[in-house]
Design a binder for these strands. Structure first.
Lengths: 204, 204
DNA sequence: TGTACATCAGTGAACGCGCGTTCACTGATGTAC
DNA sequence: TGTACATCAGTGAACGCGCGTTCACTGATGTAC
């Protein structure tokens, strides 16, 4: 074994940076191509490296995609947590806005996640990672409902609300014949209605 | 032009039947393979014909998939309409059950539709067909809410409810480590909560 | 009834293409003495 | 300081494969006379 000095540490940091560059490139390609036209060659071109170099950082394509999705979920969770902790009076509507905005501005991420949900058979060693991050995300929803004075089976509420927001995103993302602004406005309006339903249900 | 007698009619009926056989085969392949492993060769093998024969009935793969999805949506709409018309006292819960059951028992159909929503760039001549059928489906939701004594902006309610059910389906379809029965039970429980939210909102 | 011709669903082989991944190799950098 | 060697990120070409689609052709069936 080698000594794990500062050099070794720097090297590892480099590795993380390079992995991030590749994941960024993957998302840019995902954002501009239909999923079946996203290839390792395209990703490498976008990153400015040889196709084979990707395999220095990721064992295969699936791992690259899943790890990119996990990374983005981490960021989303941070944003939501930050809002819940920083704000004095938490607003469900603002929470929804942060959630929807993140997916709209990270369309590639949204498409990756949706594909995993549809496909549903990622390799076993990745499944556990995905489960952990999914639970963390649902935990954030739990916190929201607790802050709004909810007691009892909060988790089920989180499931429904998470699913509803995801459904709104996937159902109206490509509303034919509408501009992007109109679509976003429509999604947020639906989000507001969903919020009012939740609140009516809580107050019930 | 040829005379359009009984013979001609029979031929056309044959054509419809054959098209349906191919669409059925496509769905069976879709149901057992991840989407990127669904090929024209697999579909042909499933149907017991030569790959090239598919092109006698469908101009290309995309049209085959979209037309299969449209056909299934038609059937779903019929089932929902039938319930709304036949039942004396319409139950939202039963409506949800019919909706969820249909997608669970037609997983291939669900995956096709989800893919179109994700992909979002089917060819222009198919878009209009899809729009028409989507509106019809939302109309059925409208009817449900009207029957439950709703007035005003029913359409937005339909959008939210449709999205929520779709979101539940896509989010929990592949709940890791759960049996199919558990998953269905979970989905229906979430559907029930969604129903209670809607009703709390209406009564508000 | 028999014969020549037309139609057309269905076929099998082939075309051209792009994919994920592998691998022997390069060349810059660090290490040992 | 100089030299020989080790390491390893990065490369370009290739492998094997499966895809959607096309097309000249077959052969069963219907039509005309």
């Amino acid at each position: 074994m080698k000594p794990k000095g500062a050099f070794e540490k720097l090297k590892q940091q480099d590795r993380v940076i390079r992995r991030n560059i590749i994941m960024d490139s993957a998302e840019r390609v995902f954002a501009t191509n239909p999923f079946h036209k996203v290839s390792m060659r395209d990703i490498a071109r976008e990153a400015g490296i040889a196709t084979s170099s990707i395999y220095t950082y990721f064992p295969n394509q699936e791992t690259l995609f899943v790890e990119a999705a996990i990374r983005d979920t981490d960021i989303l969770i941070s944003k939501l947590r930050e809002y819940l902790e920083s704000s004095r009076e938490v607003q469900v509507e603002e929470f929804i806005n942060i959630f929807i905005d993140y997916f709209i501005t990270h369309d590639a991420y949204f498409r990756m996640v949706s594909l995993f949900m549809l496909y549903g058979s990622i390799s076993p060693d990745l499944v556990e990672k995905v489960n952990v991050i999914t639970r963390s995300l649902l935990d954030v929803f739990d916190t929201l409902f607790r802050k709004k004075g909810c007691t009892g089976d909060v988790r089920m509420l989180s499931h429904v609300f998470f699913a509803a927001l995801g459904g709104i995103l996937i159902s109206y993302r490509k509303y034919p014949g509408r501009s992007e602004e109109e679509i976003i406005r429509h999604m947020k309006r639906l989000g507001t209605i969903a919020k009012e339903m939740i609140e009516a249900y809580i107050r019930r």
